[in-house]
């Protein structure tokens, strides 16, 4: 009975009603068997590589009860490392929100020679291996800096490394929205006497907001999880520059798996919360659009 209802997503013709058009019932049975085998394989693959290992981390980290877990993430070292990671990631997220939107704006609304090259370069941090990113930054902002700026083993060095690897997120989420934005509204606002700032605040900003928040959330999640680019520049100094992922590695290397798993569990929870928030923002954005 439900098959008579036309699916709402008309853009996706792969609705449940489709296979019924094939007249042969053997074909339909084959189709079902195909789905079952494919689904089974996908679930086994995901379980062996992703789900069981991640469950093992949570089990090792929090399996002995909330008291143990709390103690493991509030040792002085774990606490300082988590606070630094969250603090630096928040700062990086806010800087990305402002500068990423600004860069997207310049790439869409401005024109200057070499713009295509700049536009291509934005994706470089995604393509470049993180350890290379770290080395690259250490060359300019390290002890042998030609500029005389030494950020190595400083918290500011960690922030710069995180800014490098998270650069594309806000730019690449805001840019397409800005491209699609109808200029009529802006012109209407301007003709009614609104200045550029008022037009931006009342017309453009509300349209960009879902994309800006999505990009910022992605950048935050990436910054929380980042390892390769920070490992060289941070120098791994406990209580000063040691971020969570670096701390997890040194715990693994000193064979403290439970401690590593506890901090890793915190990172996993943050990642999950961000993913779910993004899902909500996307639906919010779709409803507004």
């Amino acid at each position: 009975m439900t098959t008579t209802v036309v699916p709402a997503g008309a853009a996706a013709p792969a609705g449940p009603g489709q296979p019924e058009k094939v007249p042969v019932s053997a074909g339909r049975r084959q189709h079902r068997a195909g789905t079952a085998i494919g689904l089974g394989t996908a679930i086994i693959y995901l379980s062996l590589i992703v789900l069981i290992p991640l469950a093992a981390v949570v089990w090792k980290g929090a399996g002995r009860g909330p008291g143990f877990f709390w103690d493991a993430i509030t040792t002085p070292e774990a606490k300082s490392t988590l606070l630094l990671t969250v603090g630096a990631s928040m700062l990086v997220a806010v800087l990305n929100l402002v500068l990423g939107t600004l860069i997207a704006w310049v790439l869409v609304r401005d024109s200057f020679p070499g713009k295509t090259i700049v536009d291509t370069l934005i994706d470089l941090p995604f393509a470049l291996p993180t350890i290379v990113a770290g080395l690259v930054l250490l060359t300019l902002y390290g002890p042998k800096s030609p500029l005389g700026i030494n950020l190595a083993y400083q918290r500011s060095g960690v922030v710069v490394a995180l800014l490098f690897v998270t650069l594309p997120f806000v730019v690449r989420t805001v840019q397409p929205v800005l491209l699609e934005l109808d200029r009529d509204m802006e012109q209407a606002a301007a003709s009614l006497g609104a200045g550029p700032w008022l037009t931006f605040r009342r017309i453009i900003l509300p349209n960009l907001l879902p994309a800006m928040i999505s990009g910022t959330a992605l950048a935050f999640a990436r910054a929380i999880a980042e390892y390769g680019s920070t490992v060289l520049i941070s120098g791994n100094i406990p209580f000063k520059t040691q971020v969570a992922s670096v701390q997890i590695v040194s715990q693994i290397e000193s064979d403290n798996m439970a401690g590593a798993a506890a901090v890793a569990t915190v990172l996993l929870v943050v990642a999950l919360v961000v993913l779910l928030t993004l899902d909500l923002i996307q639906r919010w954005g779709a409803r507004r659009g």
Binding site: P53, V57, A221, A225, S245, V249, A261
Partner: peptide
């Protein structure tokens, strides 16, 4: 999910299993 997981946590997870 894998996009959001820290590479270090990936390593730890595989070692544990």
């Amino acid at each position: 999910l894998p996009v959001a997981v820290s590479p270090v946590v990936v390593g730890l997870a595989l070692i544990l299993v």
